[in-house]
């Protein structure tokens, strides 16, 4: 059932995640609350260990939260293990594109086969239309050829991963450092593609997990800054990047190399 438009696309309440590592408890997420309206692009920034990828994995249903609630379009993340029909149902709401497009595509499946599989699993097209629909989706991301991943470049593979995610027509698309590994000239192409997709699909909500504040400026409406499992600051992209208030956000902003920038060092324990 499509949810009413009034409910936020993503709603996270007091989310916590504790991992048990070698008999010790590690709090990866220590109480995170936020909402994302339908069609908004939210950047989640923070350094390694801040909990941003764990948060994404919980939203995807790949990790169970220790406590707290997650809702997508008003529907609660089901309790217990997500498998079979429940996993498929959740995956229809949220899709993810990962940083490492070499690991996230099946090396034996062509680009078209990969997208067709997503269409078939989620019953998005009748059998006879799988191939043409897959080609159409790949065309939408600017890929007009069919090949195995090992003969595609990094940028082309990431386009396949985006086409596969869009095939499901999700409410939410999570991009976890999805352009971080791409060459500068190719990264720009993928960022433009995402801007085109937002224009064509105004209801699609984007969660952009990244450490790159230049990418944040380019793709996001709002920003959530995470540090050690907590949200330390959030606001519009312009506020966070031009008028950061939290010391950590300020330090992050000052560390971005730009023309005329000079690095500064402190001693560190």
């Amino acid at each position: 059932m499509p949810s009413p438009d009034a409910s936020p696309s993503v709603s996270v309440q007091d989310l916590k995640k504790v991992f048990r590592v070698g008999g010790q408890s590690v709090e990866a997420i220590r109480g995170v609350t936020f909402e994302v309206p339908r069609g908004e692009s939210l950047a989640i920034v923070g350094e390694s260990g801040s909990g941003k990828t764990t948060l994404a994995r919980i939203l995807m249903g790949l990790e169970r939260p220790t406590s707290g609630t997650v809702k997508l379009g008003g529907e609660d993340l089901p309790n217990g293990r997500l498998n079979g029909r429940r996993r498929r149902r959740w995956a229809e709401r949220v899709q993810m594109v990962f940083q490492d497009c070499y690991a996230s595509l099946d090396p034996r499946q062509t680009a078209r086969g990969c997208v067709a599989e997503a269409l078939a699993v989620h019953h998005k097209a009748p059998r006879s239309e799988l191939a043409p629909r897959a080609a159409e989706l790949l065309g939408r991301v600017g890929l007009h050829l069919d090949a195995l991943p090992n003969s595609l470049s990094g940028g082309q593979r990431q386009r396949v991963a985006i086409a596969r995610a869009l095939a499901v027509a999700p409410d939410v698309l999570i991009l976890d450092e999805a352009v971080a590994a791409l060459d500068v000239s190719v990264q720009g192409q993928v960022l433009n593609l995402l801007a085109d997709i937002r224009d064509e699909t105004p209801d699609l909500t984007l969660l952009f997990i990244t450490h790159d504040l230049a990418v944040v400026r380019q793709v996001s409406d709002r920003v959530l800054v995470m540090e050690r499992g907590l949200v330390v600051e959030s606001g519009t992209t312009d506020d966070i990047l031009d008028r950061p208030t939290h010391p950590y956000t300020k330090r992050l902003r000052e560390s971005v190399p730009d023309v005329g920038w000079k690095p500064t060092a402190t001693t560190q324990v």
């Binding site: 350094e47 790159d212 504040l213 992050l252 690095p263 500064t264 402190t266």
Partner: peptide
């Protein structure tokens, strides 16, 4: 990370 990058560069 970017903040660490700044320190190592310095």
């Amino acid at each position: 990370d970017v903040t660490t990058q700044a320190e190592v560069l310095a």
